[in-house]
Design a protein around this nucleic acid. Structure first.
Lengths: 279, 279
DNA sequence: CGGTTGCTTGAATTTAATCAATCTACGTGG
DNA sequence: CCACGTAGATTGATTAAATTCAAGCAACCG
């Protein structure tokens, strides 16, 4: 059975029209306003803020300990989640019990989107470290009108969905690379880029996921991932110590990860100007 | 420069508040109402209809000849397209000039979504056969209020985006399978399923894309795709003649395509079922 | 008819998966 | 406090598979 609100024992949600608040059982108000959030400029879910003045939007926070589930496969989807702190992964279970990792989600990114398709989550989400998320009730969000400062939240949600789609397509392209090393290199670079976007170091960071999870995500075995990392380290491109990564030669990785296409000719676009929407 | 409307020389769009019409230069009105569309029940873009009574929505049709581009990479994205007739592919160009196919789009499906992320298309779309699409101006669509018959078009757009995302994740999972045959099997089954959804035969159909395109999509070489198809045919699971496919043993394909993880594997197919390529 | 495109098939090569052993860090319980 | 078990990671040897290179075939088109 699904809970109307992802309450944690000590977390109670209240309607807060002008500023988003979460009242905890401790009696303190956890500031849930996007305006005050440290992710203000990077969070996709800022869509939920600003809009709140016009309507009633209950945005709750939820703290997750490492390994804790945010939602499961098949669970009714009432919320879209914005990661505030930490890292999650989403995955689905294959018939043999093996799990296929579909995404890693960092602070400022949305999770649980896919559930909007059918109203039930197609994947499950797990915290890879202690994390905190904002739970945004998407049905209510969709009803909110445009704000003075921007388009309707719905539009921003669509935009976020499309961005997610693009990211997914890019990830699929990486997984389609035929060799292991380029895939891992591309993975590292993508990770570094996302870190940098969030204001963290793009050259030195901690992997929050296991080799096996990376492997699942990339379509490789754990061993292949490990070997690729070792290879990069042996060439002096990175240093690896357990899950701590230091990128020394991003350009070398970049060069390696550069996709080399399969033998597919550009049949439809002969040299010169590709034929398009006739002017 | 981008065009406010994807006009074709002989296609002129008119505002039609109560029913969506396209006036062609020939002077005839092409019925563009979703209500009268043969895809009525299957088209994701029905979201554009019904809503039209409340506001003004210009929906244009565009006919594409085989090989013609619907939009290019980098082009400003003013429309989301619904495929009415035919098949398209979307792809992006890799640095070496080869193309990475991201999706195949059949009648009743949406194309061009990814452009909403940044306002510019991340992929290009090409007709794989003579096709016809509806061009839906998404900015206008987003402004439309909820209809009597259902939620706001915006909500349905979000839903469609999420569905697209789920599809993409599933496709990525297929591309992550470590062997070629399961990938091709999964591809065939997915294709068959989509055909069936549209009311076509799920066992006998025509591939609209080349082996190379399938390969790009699946992360395989053309040769591997060809070999997989030959193998299936040799086992009597399908018949292949050029691009015509006849599925004889969907269950065998199903069993083969069932994703198998690495270390956690415990198999899997019930006794009697073809276990793998072992004859 | 000759050239092109797409597809199939074969043989050699390259590469990742698999199987297996080892090592470390870590938490638990004696 | 330390032995112990476990989980994650690394590395090596072997095997299995896809890619690559190459040849040939069939359909199509100007």
């Amino acid at each position: 059975m699904d809970h109307p609100v992802p309450t944690q024992d000590r977390l109670v949600l209240v309607d807060a029209p002008s500023a988003l608040h979460v009242r905890t059982a401790r009696g303190t108000d956890a500031q849930a306003s996007c305006a005050a959030c440290h992710l203000r400029d990077n969070c996709v879910a800022v869509l939920a803020d600003g809009a709140s003045e016009a309507g009633h939007l209950l945005v709750g926070r939820r703290r997750l300990r490492k390994g804790e589930l945010l939602f499961r496969e098949g669970q009714a989807c009432a919320y879209v989640y914005a990661v505030r702190v930490g890292t999650l992964k989403t995955a689905f279970t294959l018939e043999d019990g093996y799990e296929q990792v579909t995404a890693f989600c960092f602070a400022g990114e949305l999770v649980g989107f896919e559930g909007l398709a059918t109203g039930r989550h197609a994947t499950f989400a797990v915290a890879l470290e202690d994390s905190e998320v904002c739970a945004i009730p998407h049905a209510e969000l969709m009803r909110l009108p445009p704000t003075a400062t921007g388009p309707a939240p719905a539009a921003r949600l669509v935009q976020a969905a499309a961005a997610e789609l693009v990211r997914e397509q890019a990830a699929k392209a990486v997984a389609s690379l035929r060799q292991a090393d380029p895939r891992v290199a591309a993975f590292l670079l993508a990770l570094a880029g996302r870190m940098r976007e969030r204001g963290f170091s793009g050259t030195q960071f901690e992997l929050r996921m296991s080799r096996a999870e990376i492997g699942s995500y990339l379509g490789l075995t754990m061993e292949s991932v490990s070997r690729a990392l070792s290879t990069f380290a042996a060439r002096g491109w990175i240093t690896v110590s357990k899950r701590s990564i230091h990128i020394l030669a991003a350009d070398a990785l970049e060069c390696l990860s550069r996709p080399v296409g399969s033998a597919l000719v550009r049949e439809h676009c002969p040299a010169g100007q590709p034929q398009a929407l006739a002017a």
